[in-house]
Design a protein around this nucleic acid. Structure first.
Lengths: 286, 286
DNA sequence: GCTATTAGTGTACGCTATACACTGTACGGG
DNA sequence: CCCGTACAGTGTATAGCGTACACTAATAGC
């Protein structure tokens, strides 16, 4: 902490990197004895520990959870940028600095808000074993959650500490994946495909919903996006895209939900093919 | 513009939404006559127009492009948060307010920086028609680009205007997709799967690279993430995840690149299956 | 040359996060 | 019992942000 000049808030994703992709091994994940950035460690701890061991002094009039429960509606109603320390504290009826008794920085508060915003993953069905159905259910639930809290998509996913709810979602999808019989490494990859698709598709839905709220109809949203995209028509640099815009589909138009389901099926197709192949290979060797 | 009180910067993704997914039809995209938020329209225009029709008055000592070309290294070197109006102007040797002669707001400048940061998509190969190979090449190029400019991932993808380079990437992937013979609606879905996977996988790679830059080894990154994730081990709420962490893989560990390739293959498998089915159906009906 | 237009400057404002010194409260040890 | 200590919440101050606005000075058309 000592000697740091710049605002701590800006450290969330400050340091840029030339990014040489490299080994991310399973084994290395298990080495726990390495020294870790103390600030990140602290933020992570705040998400997990119940810190209630103080005895002396006045009683706290709030809990960290109360602060989060007040801040979240603020984000829901007025967007993430409305979540300022003073706005949150005003809703609580305290001064701005009071919040710093519960969270050491806005960053830490946001971590908690995000994790609370994730909520709980869907309950597994009673009849287990249909991994494809369960993965689909998980993806639908996640998309619904992300669309319900669009401000989650405004935060850089990268480098945020992972709280209890984040881990619950992870546990949930791994639970479903366990029925595939895949190797643990493969499970990780499959998971990243499914999650990547789900988040991307949610972005699209959010983008539509947001424009809808801004103005009015889907038509207006289309006009806004189309204002960019429409430039492509007639521009010699974008012939295929222009063709895609102008060529009408010969089947009935899909709704957003149908689009999501369509893509989800393709994703699960790819996964299923690998699961089957892996199963066959496993049986052959046994 | 008149009467707006809040900082214009915060409007990028300000208005939150209850998000009822709905129709996103192809036809509605084509209705161009709808009224559009004038500010967004303005920002979009700035990305596309060459605005050089002034005649009277002193000559401009800069161009918008020069500003962007100075701002981008700033983001590369010191992260997105280092891109402040005063930092950019200082590098240019002008006062802060000078930039506002070229971009009406920081938002508009960021739009331009992002589009410049996207760069150009890969050139299509001479031998055309191998759509699977071309899609893979596109995804690899996009991942490389995203990893090289990790600050792109820090900006909310949602609702940003789409500039020329963004459209070039889109054109490029649609070009490759054209060889599939898919319906235009289907192409859109397939594209969203591939792009979602690519962006998600890039996030992971960035996260690793960033932690590497912050501290040192992959081991340290693993310790940071593991500090969160390691809590799961022994926690009764996360049995499957703990099992995944502790069960060693029986095959050699994948590198990040190998992981990406593996997932990419699964994604393309799913797409290929649909392409084949669609082709078969089309031939049957013809 | 006059004048309208425009590039860049200087100043000021409101907003942000948050450091720091303070006040008052309430428990635990004497 | 009461006093000292630890801690909750307040008040004030600061640095930095984006940007509105009034200004100066330079340019080109009439």
């Amino acid at each position: 902490m000592a000697g740091r000049k710049k605002s701590e808030l800006q450290t969330r994703s400050e340091r840029a990197v030339k990014a040489a992709p490299d080994v991310l091994s399973h084994d290395v994940m298990m080495q726990a004895s390495v020294r870790v950035d103390p600030e990140l460690r602290r933020r992570s701890q705040l998400l997990w520990d119940d810190r209630a061991q103080s005895t002396r002094g006045p009683k706290a009039s709030l809990t960290p959870d109360e602060v989060v429960q007040v801040a979240m509606p603020l984000a829901d109603e007025e967007g993430l940028s409305a979540v300022t320390m003073s706005a949150v504290s005003a809703r609580l009826g305290f001064t701005t600095m009071a919040i710093y008794r519960y969270f050491p920085s806005k960053e830490a508060l946001l971590d908690a808000i995000v994790d609370a915003g994730l909520g709980l993953p869907p309950r597994p069905p009673r009849r287990r074993g249909d991994w494809r159905g369960e993965l689909a259910q998980w993806a639908r639930a996640k998309r619904t959650m992300l669309c319900a809290r669009p401000w989650l998509a405004e935060l850089p996913f990268v480098a945020a500490p992972h709280g209890p709810n984040w881990l619950r979602w992870l546990e949930s999808v791994i639970d479903a994946l366990s029925a595939t019989g895949l190797d643990s490494a493969d499970m990780g990859e499959v998971l990243s495909i499914l999650d990547g698709y789900t988040r991307g598709a949610s972005d699209t839905a959010i983008s539509l919903a947001r424009a809808r709220a801004r103005g009015s109809s889907a038509a207006q949203w289309a006009a806004e996006v189309g204002a960019d995209l429409g430039r492509a028509i007639g521009d010699p640099r974008f012939p295929h895209f222009a063709a895609l815009l102008t060529t009408p589909s010969n089947r009935p138009t899909r709704t957003m939900d149908e689009s999501f389901e369509f893509g989800l099926s393709r994703v699960l197709d790819g996964i299923e093919r690998y699961v089957d192949a892996a199963k066959a290979e496993h049986e052959a060797s046994a």
